[in-house]
Design a protein around this nucleic acid. Structure first.
Length: 280
DNA sequence: AGCTACTCCTGGTAGC
DNA sequence: TGCTACCAGGAGTAGC
């Protein structure tokens, strides 16, 4: 599932192909991709606009639009489960799961391909409003060990659902939460306000290191969904310590990795490295 | 405040 | 082989 490292990879790779391009037209194959806006309104909003800065916030991709050099709204994309973005020549025929495409002035086409149709690719007037609820970037300046410790203490939630909550900290999903918690030797059901200062510090370090290494490896591809815009799989799946490794030995201690369900999500832990809370 | 359940979707797979 | 039933899961929402 695309999380921060996968989205960052996509943004970095499509940025040079999109920046400065003019949108000549839009074709919407699955209207719900637009998140409620009618295809006609969307087409009017984007056609003729020029793509400015291409950036990421959490798991969202943003393209600033301009008309005559002035701000003209934003494209806001989210890959959710199975979304893919790539830019290729218009001569290539659309594949079976193409939900939306933008025709560019250099003969290229930006394609949004999404098997499960959960992804979104919308036009928004105001990006600050659209992203207002998101917590800090886990690789940003605000996300310090002290911030994380204070944030954990101010809530009384199990660690995993809290870290998945995009209003707490944005960009983490099921894979990287499991990996970071294992790296920090913290059980996903530990209560956030009972985490010691050293453990919070450890968790902060593991969140950042996991995300940075995953970005360096262009994300994780363990099923048919995530690929880079060039069609390459990422390689961070080769570094997984627990995710998807249920029944196999923990790479730190050799105890079998277990699969639980926490917050309705498949959750992977080593119960020797990650001691369950006493309340369980 | 924070939990669970439900919705949106489809391809893959388990079970028969 | 071919059928059905079920599952994964990010985010939004409703209800408790």
């Amino acid at each position: 599932m695309p999380e921060l490292p996968e989205v960052e990879t996509v943004v970095r790779l499509i940025r040079p192909k999109l920046t400065g391009r003019r949108i000549e037209g839009a074709r919407v194959e699955w209207a719900r991709t637009l998140g409620g806006m009618s295809p006609a309104v969307f087409q009017r909003a984007v056609t003729g606009a020029t793509l400015g800065r291409i950036w990421r916030r959490g798991k969202y991709m943003v393209a600033d639009l301009e008309r005559r050099g002035r701000p003209a709204g934003h494209l806001l994309g989210h890959l959710r489960m199975s979304g893919r973005l790539h830019v290729d020549p218009a001569s290539i025929a659309p594949g079976p799961h193409e939900r939306l495409r933008l025709l560019l002035d250099d003969g290229g086409v930006l394609r949004f391909v999404d098997v499960r149709k959960f992804g979104r690719f919308a036009f928004v007037e105001r990006i600050d409003t659209a992203l207002a609820a998101l917590g800090p970037e886990p690789l940003g300046e605000e996300f310090t060990p002290a911030w994380l410790r204070a944030g954990l203490r101010s809530r009384r939630r199990a660690l995993k659902p809290l870290l998945l909550d995009q209003t707490f900290v944005c960009g983490l999903g099921n894979i990287y939460v499991d990996e970071a918690l294992h790296g920090a030797r913290l059980h996903p059901l530990r209560r956030s306000d009972r985490i010691t200062a050293p453990a919070a510090h450890r968790l902060h370090g593991r969140i950042q290191a996991t995300l940075e290494e995953a970005i360096a490896r262009e994300g994780s591809s363990f099923d048919t969904f995530y690929r880079t815009p060039e069609g390459r799989p990422g390689s961070y799946q080769d570094q997984f310590q627990v995710y998807g490794r249920q029944g196999r030995p923990c790479l730190s201690c050799g105890a079998p990795v277990r699969r639980l369900v926490v917050a309705q999500r498949g959750t992977h832990v080593c119960l020797r490295c990650q001691r369950p809370p006493r309340s369980l």
